[in-house]
Amino acid sequence: MSKITMREAISQALMEEMDRDAAVFIMGEEVGVWGGTYAVTKGFYDKYGPARIKDTPIAENAIIGAAIGAAMVGQRPVAELMTINFAFSAMDYIVNQAAKLRYMFGGQFTLPLVIRAVGGGGRQLGATHSQTPDAIFAHFPGRRVVSPGTPEDAKGLLKTAIRSDDPILFIEHATMYQVRGEVPEGEYVIPIGKSKIQRAGRDLTIITYCKGLELSFKAAEELSKEGIEAEIVDLRTLRPLDMEPVLSSFMKTNRAIVVEEGWKSFGIGSEVASRIYEQAFDFVDAPILRVAQKEVPLPYNRTLEQAALPQVADITAAAREVLK
């Protein structure tokens, strides 16, 4: 095992897959000469050259649309959206085309496309640049949605995503590139569509993913000081949602909270909670609580922005509440 950052993990996954398969190439804004807005593809341009590391015009529709076309004729593009907020500028391609073309044409072709996008708030970027709209994308069938919370998962899941014959949206978090974690030495992959217990506990289940995982780990440590042991289930993939570890944990703890950075209404927490109610109603000892972003666009002012985002204290408070 070696300890690396999230940035290094993603970068390694991309490089290993590019070395393994010549059909893999990267396209997006500032991925080449600049080295990636978040420095994930630093050094790639020099190593692979402009044919495989493509700096695009600022044209999100063309980026995703052209990546879809290239994927349909046999290449394996990794298209980067500088931030997930710009996915809204390419919504037709992400929702109407990538997710539906294969189905509509009766499975005549595959669409091996990875869209990497950075999301998340907390950097004072204002309302249009700080969103965590993951749930919207998870809503549509036809495209998988992956959002890792540790370097190990990021690397293994991204490698699987690149090898997959289907379109996948891979969501990273802008404040997590420096997060460090152990990754296995050498080649490994992690299957998409598998949730994972990231921390064992007996008293309640915290279901979360991505940034929520970082916050939940901190919350669990604090709760532990009070003698409360939280079990943390990391969804890792939002579509398809793997409820198995969630349900088995819940059947043990009988109490759960769902933590996500996005807005609460119509969110990941709503989906997870209703599936628990549907599938494990007899095990429910307390209402399942959702910890999420306040229902406002994110403001620039730091204090206000932090007040709108879910915090560790919100998680510990919710945990105490379900244990009452």
Binding site: N85, L125, T128, P299, Y300, N301, R302
Partner: peptide
């Protein structure tokens, strides 16, 4: 990020506006 700013501190550098002066904003989506 102060309340006396053009956008009450909610917009920041990229979102200055005063519609009474016919300045309809900085906009951050290219």
């Amino acid at each position: 990020g102060k309340v006396t700013g053009t956008s009450k501190g909610k917009g920041g550098s990229m979102h200055m506006a005063d519609t009474s002066k016919n300045m309809w904003g900085g906009h951050a989506i290219v």
